[in-house]
């Protein structure tokens, strides 16, 4: 863990609000990215990030400093997002036509132009929206966020074999969806 982060956490344990604000500013964007990819909704993702950082503040006393901080933080975020996912419509069905349209829009935007959040949400939901909760979590962490298997295990608290199994099934579903979306895209272009 970088020394700066270690110092920051030490200060937060002592109730230092300034140090905590620094942590929030450092990690709120990557936290928002993960929450957005899990939930597929801007407002829900913001709420999940807010709730997660409040929990981090409340639970900082129980953080074991011998372990990595980032997986611990992401575990809280992943669990909070998963809880929110259950309260909203989990298996949101998105028509293939719409997903293909959004894919075309994202591909045709100018380089350097940020992706439209709504288009991105539709695309992610189109690929992974119908996956069971654990498969979706593993897929997002591993194949979208690009985390290693060890990091995914630390965040989800699954065994190595469980991660592999969930990833295998998730990829199978996503692959089928991808090929259908691409098939539809050909008719749009």
């Amino acid at each position: 863990m970088p020394e700066n982060l270690q110092e920051t956490i030490g200060c937060i344990r002592n109730g230092d609000h300034t140090a905590f604000k620094k942590l929030v500013e450092m990690y709120q964007q990557p936290a928002y990215r993960l929450a957005f990819r899990i939930l597929g909704n801007e407002e829900e993702a913001k709420d999940a990030v807010q709730e997660s950082f409040i929990k981090i503040w409340q639970k900082i006393g129980s953080y074991d400093s011998s372990r990595e901080f980032i997986p611990w933080m992401y575990r809280i975020l992943a669990n909070t997002s998963a809880d929110r996912m259950r309260t909203i419509r989990r298996h949101e069905w998105v028509p293939i036509d719409l997903v293909s349209q959004k894919l075309v829009a994202l591909q045709q935007r100018d380089q350097g132009t940020p992706a439209d959040n709504h288009d991105l949400a539709i695309l992610i939901k189109g690929l992974a929206g119908k996956l069971p909760e654990t498969q979706k979590m593993v897929f997002i962490l591993r194949d979208v966020e690009g985390m290693s298997s060890e990091e995914v295990e630390a965040i989800t608290e699954l065994t190595g074999n469980a991660v592999k199994s969930n990833l295998y099934h998730a990829r199978k579903s996503v692959r089928e969806r991808l090929l259908r979306i691409l098939e539809k895209e050909r008719t749009i272009k």
Partner: peptide, 29 residues
């Protein structure tokens, strides 16, 4: 299909008004 996956990976969802989010968190704690 790989290009689509790369597009999803490389597209960063934009956090609108990060200052507001920080303010809300700090007010709550």
């Amino acid at each position: 299909a790989r290009e689509v996956m790369n597009l999803v990976r490389n597209s960063e969802p934009m956090l609108r008004d990060p200052g507001e989010l920080t303010g809300n968190i700090m007010a709550a704690i």
